[in-house]
Nucleic acid binder design. Structure first.
Length: 781
DNA sequence: CAGTGAGCGAGCTTCCGCTTGACTT
């Protein structure tokens, strides 16, 4: 046994550090936190000054017992968890749970995993900072109180199994408010004028110059009047302005910026990014992927410099120290960078290669020179008008960091301003080839993507690198928010064109507003958000986290006792929970749309037990109400009376077949026909509102025919093993799981015994569907 | 990836941050 036991948080880190420290040291990892508040009840003793009731987490029992054993047989235990609030708490929980003695225990921290940094840390141990630990306890207890007191209010007032929390509820609020901004947005039209000028250069060849008018016109009349004026106007170059422009590289990646860029450049979801980054980290290819720091180690900067010199030359090098501007950043790690910057590419899956490439380029670029550009503006006078046309062009003089990397933006580029402008002289006169005045509309705000929501949360200081991806998953799993697309809608716009002395007036159309993989609030998300906002505005405040963070800082500085701070919060918060439970109504988000013209009864939409429904009539009326579910793409907030009436046209009886009636309807999986207790999906070409009895029979018979070919074998006493023909060929169905049949098997002669062998051989892979860890909450066993 | 289309009922659900397990000898 070693004389020294070092405990870090992650096994990959343990492995690296073990190499640096040699035989005298054994390095183990705690796998993050080892204890947490009890899952039974709130896990806080309110009678006893908020004493937290900690338990070793179910999945950490084994690790803790191993650590205990190792600690016992070591002379000194070195607690080397991260140097932030959570890391300090991990060290403290370890000391408590492993019953470490102060005289044998050292607390050490390091920011880079290099031999020097670690040896330096070992030479400069300190004690556990109990104030910092207390700040963490306050954070933990606050989150538990908020989450576990608010969620049950939702179970009672909205729907069971819902959840609320300091982070997730605000994330949902952002999406809800953005959606309402979009709904309330009225695009404003204006006329943008652009011109194509013709000139001759010194050699006499014709050159073209595109320019845009410095001002837009609010009305068609103004635009027409301007074009009218241009008919006889003279165009002369007023001035030429050249100004140097510098562009600087973005800082190296943090978790949040990596998620954003991987989303924009590679189309990864935030979870996907984290899963791939985890792989790269575990195989030693990149540094730790959950970080809020933009800092690079001296060693990394040194190798980056060497690489840049080798690749592009000395003048491309510019060493930069970036500093974090993020609210509440704790900077326990380096920025995300390649472990060995000299490795330009790596072995691995396509996704790993692409993400690594992105990280490598971003890291290298961050230590490269600014790009130097020259922006040219040519100002063109119009006789008889005091407006000016402006032609702009940008030329790269020195590419600098652009040689390897350019950060993407979320917005699509507007007018293209790149390219070289032809040489012009001051006073030169130009002829216009054509002048266009096009109607343009102001843009509504864009919906959030997963990654842009992460950026917003980070900006507000809400959530941590380790929780961005899980938070995004949680609000989708709770069905508050869903990822979806919106089809573009056609919009007409007016184009006025002046050419050859004549003005034409045309209507063109464009597609606008298409969105892919954006976050939309659901009806339940809207109702929960409005409810929480009404009764708990303090928790829903975008500054709530920032405010409590300030309080935690005071605790960490030893100025405030953490229990006092929690007491202040709880005394105000808990009574509101009580009064809300007592005084608030059940929330169904009801919206009254109007009157049914047929029956004269009221039509309303609301959230029913199983989702959003439309309802004809009131429940207190003698005649029972009639219900119909809303379709997937409809929302309580935006559905119209006409659309709601349409819902009641289904289910529809379409006739009889074999003495049983056929009913057409739309279900969760689209339109279908029900007949004799069986369901038959309708192809896209058939409309359930229109479909005839003859056509329905056709569909039923076609399905029967294909089902006949579906069953190949049935085995077992109760037919529990079935060999079926599926979309991807034959497979075995057994106890609700499906099993692959190995290639080169003759399906026709497959025996029961062979099937059972296949089932047992795949038993460990089938059924336990593997979920990426980033979206998962572990349940206590 | 495997073909689905809810409804009486008990008891359960939930937070945010750290971090990745892997049956035996």
């Amino acid at each position: 046994m070693s004389k020294n036991l070092v405990i870090v948080e992650s096994p990959a880190k343990a492995k690296t550090i073990g190499k640096f420290l040699g035989n005298e040291f054994e390095v183990m990892s705690s796998m993050g936190h080892i204890r947490d508040l009890s899952e039974k009840g709130l896990g806080i003793d309110f009678e006893n000054n908020y004493a937290p009731q900690y338990e070793v987490s179910a999945d950490k029992k084994k690790i803790v017992s191993e650590l205990k054993k190792a600690a016992k047989s070591s002379e000194t235990v070195w607690l080397a968890s991260d140097e932030d609030r959570e890391g300090e708490a991990i060290a403290w929980h370890l000391a408590e749970e492993l019953k470490l003695k102060k005289e044998n225990t050292r607390r050490i921290v390091f920011h880079e995993i290099t031999k020097d940094a670690i040896l330096h840390a070992v030479e400069n141990p300190r004690e556990i900072d109990i104030n910092l630990v207390d700040a963490q306890q306050a954070r933990r207890v606050l989150d538990r109180i908020v989450g576990f007191e608010l969620s049950p209010v939702l179970w009672r007032k909205v729907r069971p199994s819902l959840s609320a929390g300091r982070v997730q509820s605000v994330a949902v609020r952002l999406i809800v408010e953005r959606e309402r901004e979009i709904n309330n947005f009225n695009p404003e039209a204006s006329y943008r004028v652009s011109a194509l000028f013709i000139s001759k250069d010194a050699a006499g060849t014709k050159v073209e110059l595109k320019a845009e008018l410095s001002q837009r016109f609010k009305t068609k009349e103004e635009a027409l009047a301007f074009l009218e004026l241009c008919k006889s106007a003279k165009f002369t170059v007023d001035s030429i302005e050249k100004k140097p422009l510098k562009k600087s590289p973005a800082p190296p990646f943090t978790t949040s910026t990596l998620q954003q860029e991987a989303s924009r450049k590679l189309g990864f979801s935030v979870t996907q990014t984290m899963v791939v980054a985890q792989k790269l980290y575990e195989s030693g290819k990149i540094t730790y992927m959950r970080t809020d720091s933009v800092n690079l180690s001296a060693l990394a900067i040194g190798t980056a410099k060497q690489e840049i010199i080798q690749m592009a030359g000395e003048k491309y090098v510019k060493i930069r120290q970036f500093s974090t501007k993020t609210k509440g950043a704790q900077e326990a790690h380096e920025a995300i960078r390649p472990t060995y910057i000299s490795s330009h590419t790596i072995e691995g899956t396509a996704q790993e290669k692409r993400l690594y490439d992105l990280i490598w380029k971003r890291t290298i670029a961050s230590q490269m020179a600014d790009a130097e550009l020259e922006k040219t503006n040519i100002y063109i006078n119009i006789s008889g008008s005091n407006h000016q046309f402006i032609a702009s062009g940008e030329v790269i003089i020195f590419d600098g960091f652009l040689k390897v990397y350019l950060e993407s933006t979320d917005d699509e580029p507007d007018a293209e301003t790149s390219g070289i402008l032809p040489t012009m002289k001051k006073g030169e006169s130009l002829t216009s080839n054509e002048i266009l005045a096009q109607e343009r509309f102001t843009q509504r705000p864009p919906r959030y993507t997963e990654a842009s929501l992460v950026r917003k949360l980070e900006e507000l200081g809400i959530g941590r690198p380790s929780t961005y991806a899980p938070t995004i998953s949680t609000i989708q799993n709770r069905n508050y928010v869903e990822k979806g697309d919106r089809q573009a809608i056609k919009r007409d716009f007016n184009v006025l064109k002046l050419k050859d002395g004549k003005i034409s007036d045309k209507i063109k159309s464009e597609n606008t507003g298409a969105e892919k993989s954006k976050l939309f609030p659901t009806d339940i998300g809207l109702v929960v958000n409005d409810f929480l906002f009404e009764y708990f505005p303090n928790i829903m405040d975008y500054n709530f986290t920032a405010n409590v963070e300030k309080e935690f800082d005071h605790i960490a500085e030893g100025k405030v006792k953490w229990t006092k701070s929690i007491d202040n919060f709880y005394k105000k918060f808990h009574p509101v929970v009580e009064s809300t439970l007592k005084n608030s109504e059940r929330q169904v988000g009801e919206r009254i749309l109007g009157i049914d013209p047929k029956s004269g009864r009221q039509i309303a939409v609301k959230i029913g037990k199983f989702g959003p429904i439309a309802q004809i009539g009131k429940s207190e009326e003698e005649e029972k109400p009639v219900f119909a579910s809303l379709h997937r793409n409809q929302s309580i907030e935006s559905i119209t009376l006409e659309e709601a009436l349409e819902l009641f046209k289904l289910p529809r009886e379409i006739g009889e077949f074999e003495n049983k009636e056929m009913i057409a309807a739309i279900g969760r999986f689209g339109p279908y026909i029900r007949h004799d207790g069986k369901f038959y999906s309708l192809p896209k070409t058939d409309d359930p509102l229109e479909i005839s009895a003859e056509r329905a029979v056709e569909i039923i018979e076609a399905k029967r025919e294909s089902d006949k070919n579906k069953v190949i074998h049935i085995f077992g006493q109760n037919g529990e093993i079935q060999v079926l023909n599926g979309r991807f060929g034959a497979y075995i169905a057994f106890e609700k799981n499906n099993y692959k049949i190995p290639k080169n098997t003759d399906v026709a002669t497959l025996t029961e015994e062979q099937c059972r062998e296949i089932i047992t051989s795949q038993a460990d892979t089938v059924g336990k569907k593997k979920k990426p860890f980033a979206g998962r909450r572990k349940k206590a066993q």
